[in-house]
Amino acid sequence: MTNDADVLQIDNLQTSFFIDGSEIKAVDGVSLNIPKGKTVGIVGESGSGKSITSMSVMRLIRNPGRIKGGSIHFNGEDLLQKTEKNMQNIRGNKISMIFQEPMTSLNPVYTVGQQISEVLQIHQNLSKKEALSKSVEMLELVGIPSPNDRVKQYPHELSGGMRQRVMIAIALACNPELLIADEPTTALDVTIQAQILELMNGLRKELGMSVILITHDLGVVAETCDYVAVMYAGQIVEYADVHTLFNNPKHPYTVGLMQSLPRHDMDQEELNVIEGNVPKPGEMPEGCRFAPRCPFASDICTRELPDLMETEDGNQVRCWVYSEKWDGDPEVNVKDDYKTARSQ
C-alpha cells in the first residue's frame, strides 16, 4: 500500500463517538491517499464525516470520540501509533489545519502576533523577537495590509476574512507538508471566499505542499482540486481525479450533488436538491447507505453494502450499478438517466 508519491495514506479509518452506551460511526472505513503537492477535495453534505476524518488525521478526536481502527500513514509512518508528544511535534508543523469558523478560531485574549509567534516558538525554537518579525512576514504573505500594526491587534479588531487570513498565516508559518482546510471559506462572503481560495492556491504552488480541501461547494472543487473524494454517511462513495469526476460522475449521489449545483445558464428554480436526508447514525440502512434516497435503488441495494470498485473511466465508486451483481436495469446510465429516474 505504501507509495512514495503520497504524503498521506488513510486506510480503513474508523472513528466513532460513544454516547449513552451507543456507538455513532462518524467515519466508517475511509481510505484515501493524498499525492504530494496536490489538492484533494472532500465533498459531501453536512454530517457526512468530513471534519471528523480530518480531525482524526490530526489526532484531535476527544472524548467521547475515539479512533477505533485503521491506519494513517504520513510519509510512511503511522500517525495512529505515535505518542501524544510526537503528535504535538507534527501538529502545526508538518501538518496544519484551518477551520470552518474564522470568527471563533482565534483566542480573543492574545494578539494576532502572539498567536502566530506561538507556533514558531514551539516548532522552530525562535526567540520571541525573531518569531514576531517572522509573524509580520507571514501577515504580509497572506495579504494583510499594514502588517506591522496588525500584529499588535486582537482578533475582535479584525473582520472575518482577515481572521481567516491570520489562521492561514498560523497554519503556514512552519511550512507544513500537508494543509487541511476544513471549509475555510464557508463562513465568509463570496468575494472574500474567492480571495482566500486564490491565496491558498497560490501559496500551495509557492510552498509545494499538499492540501486537503473540505467543502460543500462543488464549484470550489472544480476550480481548485486535483482529485475529489465524495463522502456520504461516514464513507467515501466516489473518488476520481477532478476531470473524470466532473465529466463522468458515476455514483448517483455525486450526480445528484452536481445537478443541485446552481448553474448560471439555468433558472434558479430548476435547482435540484437531493430529496431526503442523510441517514441518522443510529438508523443506518443495512445495504447501500444512499438507497433510501437513490432513484436507481434495486433489490441488492437494500440487502448488501457495496465496496468501492474501479470503473473503466478510473473512478472508484461504491455502487452496485458497476458490479457484476447488479440486478437492476442492465442498460442504466446513472448520469444521463438521473433526472428521469428521479421524477418517477
Partner: peptide
Amino acid sequence: GQDYIRTARAKGVKERFVIYKHALKN
C-alpha cells in the same frame, strides 16, 4: 469547548499550556 482551544491543540501546543495559557486566561 471553544474553537480557539481546538486551534491551540492543532498548533501543537502542549496540553498543559492549552489549559494554563489558552483556557485559563479566558
